[in-house]
């Protein structure tokens, strides 16, 4: 009797932490097969990749806290990466009349506005028409994709990838924050940390943050309790849009070019990261620390698979399975135990 009970407890523990166990096993396996996986260069690489994905995941996490989602995120990143690449460049393909690159702060402001406005539009549709965010962002991602394609055809660009960004901009993003041995830690790692801090304050220290969790947990109760539900939803999506814009702004320099497929499928990585990190689709739960852990673990998995030279096509299958498993494990916690 007693033994049986313990067995059940252990099984529960294993299942609830299955994702972490799988990842730990993977790390051990990769480290044995390819010892360089745990070398400085590899670790810095994982940290840098994590940093590059963090702002976006932090944005999308808010949408998931609302018991929603945002599948337009990757396209918003892409659009803003293209805008950034076209304005902070020395080859004026999109805007042939430009005589000099735009000042960096102006471009930053532009992308923040573009991202924010698209987010606001998403949020407006969700709040005002009471549509599920999935439907709204499914539509807007198509619209944004169309806009990206049109934008890339402007001037003399003819849809080509944009590159030749200014040194000043590239330095600002990818220049060394500091070096560990010969390995460079890029500046955007520091920026990501700043955004983590900012989002932590917003989530935990503002009425808006508390309202966001309340709306995600029970919309009707939030309304009755005096929360401005529509405004909260619109603000969450606007904030998310701005975070995607920043991701795009960083990504153009990080990758060194931008084209119509920049940001493709980014949202699926960001969503899986959130779910792995405990930002539940049930709504109303999640922590900033969870988002960080989620993004980090996901990058560890990808890096591990890369080290093992796993076929890139296979990685898609792995990603899909990760989302499924993570969601299933998460749901276990919210099912009524019988």
């Amino acid at each position: 009797m007693e033994k049986k009970f313990d067995k059940k407890k252990i099984l529960d523990l294993l299942l609830n932490n299955a994702m972490y166990i799988i990842i730990a096993l993977l790390v051990v396996y990769v480290a044995i097969k390819r010892p360089k996986f745990l070398g400085i260069a590899s670790i810095i690489n994982i940290i840098s990749l994590t940093a590059s994905k963090l702002p976006m995941a932090l944005g999308i996490a808010g949408c998931i806290v609302l018991a929603g989602t945002d599948i337009s995120a990757g396209k918003i990143v892409g659009l803003n990466a293209c805008i950034t690449a076209s304005l902070l460049t020395t080859v004026y393909k999109i805007w042939p009349n430009m005589t000099a690159p735009f000042p960096i702060p102006v471009v930053l402001l532009i992308v923040l506005c573009v991202g924010g406005l698209i987010g606001l539009f998403n949020g407006f549709c969700v709040a005002q028409f009471d549509l599920h965010p999935y439907i709204v962002t499914l539509s807007t991602q198509l619209i944004i994709y169309g806009i990206i394609l049109i934008y890339m055809m402007l001037g003399t660009n003819n849809g080509m990838a944009l590159s030749g960004m200014t040194e000043e901009y590239k330095q600002l993003i990818t220049g060394p924050l500091f070096n560990i041995g010969t390995v460079r830690v890029p500046r955007y790692v520091f920026y990501a940390l700043c955004f983590v801090g900012l989002m932590w304050v917003i989530w935990n220290k503002t009425t808006f943050g508390k309202n966001m969790f309340a709306v995600g947990s029970n919309k009707v109760a939030a309304e009755v309790s005096g929360v401005n539900v529509k405004k909260t939803i619109m603000m969450v999506f606007t904030l998310a849009g701005m975070m995607y814009a920043i991701t795009g702004f960083i990504d153009a320099a990080r990758v060194g070019s931008a084209n119509a497929t920049t940001g493709l499928n980014y949202e699926s990585d960001a969503i899986s990261a959130c779910v792995i990190g405990g930002v539940s689709f049930v709504g109303g739960t999640g922590k900033i620390s969870g988002v960080i852990i989620g993004v980090l673990l996901l990058q560890v998995i990808f890096a591990g698979l890369n080290f093992l030279s796993v076929n890139a096509n296979l990685i898609y299958i792995v990603k899909g399975l990760i989302i499924l498993i993570a969601c299933a494990i998460d749901m276990r916690k919210y099912l009524t135990k019988k």
Binding site: F213, S217, S225, V227, S280
Partner: peptide, 24 residues
Amino acid sequence: TEERRATGIFGVRDIQANSTISSL
């Protein structure tokens, strides 16, 4: 409200969040 579960509580949130939401 009458329907405590549907329109009253924030089920997954803690006592503090549930207590303070209207007077933040």
